[in-house]
Amino acid sequence: MRGGHERIFTTMLHGAVSLTDNNLFLQSEFKDGEDLLSYSFTSYPYDRIQSFLDDKVTLQKIAENGRKKVIEKHTWLARAKKIIETVIYHKHFMA
């Protein structure tokens, strides 16, 4: 799977830490343990998650980092701007 769901970005945008399954897209855009928390369906790391829940300072930093990245690249406005840039870029080659 190579995508991110709006719910992941919305939680991060509102200042929460997203706990989500991992995929290639999320790995390329976010750092596990720095911008969000990821897990695998084959091994659910209860101890790791509990350690983050016990460390409120780190949890707050993850929330802040994730929110910053979402604002920069993963809002509807950021997506619309990227689409417009791409259309304008390709329009030059089709004229």
Rank of each mutant, 00 (worst) to 15 (best):
M12H: 06
E34K: 09
L13T: 11
D54T: 06
F41D: 14
G4I: 06
L26N: 14
L77F: 11
L26P: 12
R79T: 12
A63S: 11
L36R: 05
L26V: 15
F52K: 01
K73C: 04
L53K: 12
F30E: 04
L13M: 13
D54E: 13
M94N: 02
N65A: 06
I8Q: 13
G66T: 01
V17F: 00
E85M: 05
Y39K: 02
D47P: 08
E64M: 09
H74C: 01
K82P: 03
T75M: 05
K68D: 10
V17C: 02
D54I: 04
N22F: 12
L53T: 10
Q50D: 15
S51I: 06
V70K: 00
Q27A: 08
S51F: 10
L59D: 04
P45S: 01
I83Y: 01
A80L: 06
S28L: 08
K68F: 03
S38D: 13
M12C: 07
R7G: 10
I49L: 13
A63K: 01
A80I: 12
V17M: 03
H5I: 09
Y39S: 03
S38P: 08
H92K: 15
H92D: 12
F25A: 08
F52G: 00
F41S: 11
Y46H: 14
K56D: 12
D21M: 05
L53I: 04
H90V: 00
Q50Y: 14
T75V: 05
Y39R: 06
T58L: 15
R67F: 03
I88E: 00
D32C: 01
I83C: 07
H14I: 05
R67A: 02
D54S: 12
L77P: 01
V57R: 09
V57G: 10
T11C: 13
D35P: 03
D35R: 04
I62W: 01
E29V: 10
S40D: 15
I71P: 07
Q60H: 15
K73S: 15
I83M: 05
E34I: 07
G66Q: 04
E85I: 00
Y46K: 14
Y89G: 00
L24G: 13
L77C: 03
A95H: 08
R79F: 10
L59A: 04
H14L: 11
H5P: 09
N23A: 07
G15P: 09
R67I: 04
L59S: 06
F52H: 06
H5T: 10
P45K: 02
K82H: 05
M1S: 15
V70Y: 03
L13V: 07
